[in-house]
Amino acid sequence: MARRLGLALATCLFLGFGAAAEAQPQAVKPPANDDCLACHGDPDAKRENGTSIGLDDKVFAASTHGPLACVDCHKDLATLQEFPHPEKLAKVACATCHDDEGAKYHDSIHSWAKEKAGLTAAAPACADCHGKHDIRGRDDATARVFRANIPATCGACHTGVLDQYKTGIHATTRAVGNDKAPVCIDCHTAHDIRRTDTDASRLGVTAQCGTCHAESMRTYRDTFHGQVTRLGFVQVATCADCHGAHDIFPKADARSMVSASNRVTTCRKCHADANDNFAQYDPHADRHDKARSASLYYTGKFMDGLLMTVFGLFGIHTALWLARGLRERGRAKK
């Protein structure tokens, strides 16, 4: 083993000297992947502290970055002339290529926690969700960011949320094959994740619910909560305030926040003095749906009739008056 390490070191040193011998500033030849693998291909090669520096080149070759050179990401090694290189390398800047995602991540709560709040170990950077040398595209079923794998990837840190999510209707309907049902990123986005109490997040998540629950969104928009949130005021109920976020259940389920037994408690989150009567208010009432609410349906019809009668009669009254008045005026001028 010692002989192999020695050989690897010798190769690295040779390469380093070779580069130095050519000594033309622009023409430094960066190490090829095979050069790196001379050391890193050895599963037993270790850092000073005993951790492995080994890398399975088959895993890397199969990754979505397989065609890239090591120095494409580890840029500081492209111009380094002395090998073995120092243990501490510059951070890989994924945003060099993935600039859109980088910009979104930069504004996210994850980035804020890492860069500003000092949660350096806890908060994720790119590799924590996407992997490093084994990185795979989201269409690859083995990728950590493959749709079906997202809950597990986020749940690696957000364990409590994952437990809640697993019980909810979105996860259980996914389990029986409804791939449209949301995973974490559908509501929270992948890179631009915000605190859920910000206006932008509350509006964004609400809009997301509507992409599948179109009918509920339509009726929500017809009632006060939906009317004012549409105009940007979000200190009133949005979907998640009444239905929950991760452990959403159908209203027939006793665990649901909008089940008959829980509804008053849910209303009281905002309307502290709400009673049983109050909780009978239908936040998704539909004036066109006779079966859902006959009283509202017939009130709507009455109002339509009233408006048409008033405007019809006064429309005629005004039109006739205008015509006669103009004739009178014409006559007066003559």
């Binding site: 502290a272 009673n275 009567n277 109050f278 208010y281 239908d282 009432a285 609410s293 009283s295």
Partner: peptide, 24 residues
Amino acid sequence: FPTVFATLMPGWFFNIALLVHGEE
């Protein structure tokens, strides 16, 4: 004042109220 009036009238009344308030 929905919670005040809810002590006197049923919840569906507020659905009617919202509709007629806007239409009227």
